[in-house]
């Protein structure tokens, strides 16, 4: 078998192994979904009326793409925890002694978490439909948005791989993961229109990958999409999202691989 095919088939084996734990520990997925639903309820019903959207539009339709994006960013925590757990339980070492493709341990993790998070996103979208969120454009735009979410999920998982290999315990992985994504998802256009933020935070919120992806989804799906200034992120959110993904992958994938190699030090 050629090196690449081997890397692929081993990656699939590892991903399959990771995914088997989902039905074995259903609480994992259930609470991930409940958490997102709570966010929807909190913001849609508690703050929804109090936050006026410039240019009008339904707050719930504005909010839901952001909630999906928040879930996309959580992939970083999921992956970090899975990685740390495998390192600490000696499984990574165990696999490293096998004649398998070593890349499979990282790519398999990123792949399984991509599938897992895609499943969670599907459940969330269905819940979104129930509270009034709609895609107002076409099937192609919907698929483009979904593809974009998966792309960013994948990049987030590589950040998670890197975090997971750098922290001593699952608890720390959890904390560091949230430390990464909370500022990103809150200093953004997810919950409030960016113009309500202090002016010095506005550029941050504008360029933040979470905002850019959210804006891209709103644009693609025809959901309310208020933006402060015109500028690159406002005008080309899809493009900027793809650029962000490339940058994040280019930085964090090699970092993760380097930490992985350092295991044998």
């Amino acid at each position: 078998m050629s090196g690449l095919r081997r890397a692929l088939s081993d990656g699939l084996l590892v991903a399959g192994r990771n995914l088997r734990r989902v039905p074995r520990i259903p609480e994992l997925a259930i609470f991930a979904i409940i958490q997102s639903v709570i966010f929807v309820l909190l913001f849609a019903f508690v703050f929804g009326g109090a936050i006026p959207l410039p240019g009008g539009g339904s707050y719930r339709e504005f909010l839901l793409p952001g909630i999906f994006v928040q879930t996309v960013f959580f992939a970083c925590v999921t992956t970090a925890i899975g990685m740390t757990d495998d390192v600490n339980k000696g499984l990574i070492d165990r696999f490293r002694s096998l004649p398998m493709a070593r890349s499979a341990l990282l790519s398999g993790r990123a792949l399984s978490d991509l599938v897992y998070n895609a499943g969670i996103l599907i459940v969330l979208m269905v819940s979104g439909l129930a509270v009034g969120w709609r895609v107002h454009t076409g099937v192609l735009e919907f698929l483009a948005g979904a593809g974009l979410m998966l792309l960013v999920t994948f990049a987030m998982s590589w950040i998670g791989v890197w975090i997971g290999m750098n922290v001593p315990t699952v608890e720390v992985a959890n904390q560091v993961g949230f430390m990464f994504i909370f500022p990103l998802t809150f200093v953004s256009n997810i919950f409030v229109p960016p113009e309500t933020l202090p002016s010095w935070l506005q550029p941050v919120a504008e360029w933040n990958p979470a905002s850019v992806l959210t804006a891209a989804l709103r644009q693609l799906w025809g959901n309310p999409n208020p933006y402060v200034a015109d500028g690159l992120p406002a005008e080309h959110p899809v493009l900027i999202t793809v650029a962000w993904t490339v940058v994040l992958l280019a930085v964090f994938a090699p970092l993760g691989v380097r930490r992985f190699r350092a295991l044998s030090r």
Binding site: D10, R21, G90, L91, R94, M100
Partner: peptide
Amino acid sequence: RASIGLSGQYAAVDENLTGEENLVLFGRLY
């Protein structure tokens, strides 16, 4: 790696898989 089998000091098997699944996974990776 292709010629060795290792069993470390502390059992390292996947707790969330069944015994059979663990062995099949290892077999496939071998």
